[in-house]
């Protein structure tokens, strides 16, 4: 049976979580413009619950062409813990490098490696922005492991699944992002671990109480 958000949260808690996400991703958009000098459009986040085993299927469903996708994962730790996952459709190295106004040498050989590193740096900033803002609103903070790329094949997908606990349900908060005028878009998900769901419920109530 499909897991359901209603089994985990009351309808009030669900609304609070949705509003926190709206605020967090809005704040992230505003601050990202300061950090990377580009307007990143983040869509209204969508929250749902999935079984970890369905994650590759879910990713596939959400990208128009499943070929040559770059998937990036970054774990975060704290009371609020889980993974940020960024899915980038494959774009040319130049487009990606163009997001950051740095000068890179194009000697052919190192360009591919640099492209990977640039992806990781952009991913780190995007995931950090969204996770950081959510944490801030929930009155906590998190630390991060370095992000890494996941190869988009069955082995890569298995590694991704194996990095979670078995039979875990995860709360997925998904947003579509687009770098304005760069024709680069993708989607970003925040997945929470089972362990932080109790904490999350508590944090949602605390958040609301501060307005009562």
């Amino acid at each position: 049976m499909e897991p359901n958000l209603n089994d985990i949260f009351s309808s009030d808690e669900k609304d609070i979580l949705q509003e926190i996400m709206n605020i967090a991703f809005g704040n992230a958009t505003a601050d990202l413009a300061q950090v990377i000098d580009i307007y990143v459009v983040l869509s209204v986040p969508n929250i749902k619950v999935i079984d970890i085993g369905d994650l590759p299927h879910y990713i596939k469903q959400n990208i128009p062409s499943s070929e040559n996708t770059s998937i990036l994962q970054q774990k975060f730790w704290g009371e609020f813990r889980g993974s940020g996952i960024l899915v980038f459709p494959q774009t040319s190295g130049k487009d990606i490098a163009g997001i950051l106004d740095d000068q890179f040498s194009d000697d052919g050989f190192t360009l591919h490696r640099q492209k990977t590193e640039i992806l990781l740096e952009i991913g780190n900033i995007l995931i950090g922005a969204c996770v950081g803002k959510v944490s801030e609103l929930l009155g906590t903070f998190v630390t991060y492991s370095p992000p890494h790329l996941i190869v988009d094949d069955s082995e890569g997908h298995n590694n991704l699944i194996n990095s979670f606990e078995e039979n875990q349900t995860a709360i997925v908060m998904k947003t579509i992002f687009e770098f304005e005028n760069k024709n680069i878009n993708g989607f970003l998900m925040i997945l929470t671990d089972n362990e932080s769901i109790d904490w999350l419920r508590h944090a949602l109530q605390n958040f609301m109480e501060s307005y009562e």
């Binding site: 992230a28 950090v35 000098d37 740096e121 780190n124 950090g128 922005a129 950081g132 803002k133 991060y144």
Partner: peptide, 25 residues
Amino acid sequence: DAPWFKRNCKSVLAFGNFSFLSQKL
């Protein structure tokens, strides 16, 4: 005093981010 360094400083200050500046890049 270059975009990459300042960008990463800003992301730490704005989001409490961690930045990993790799030797590869």
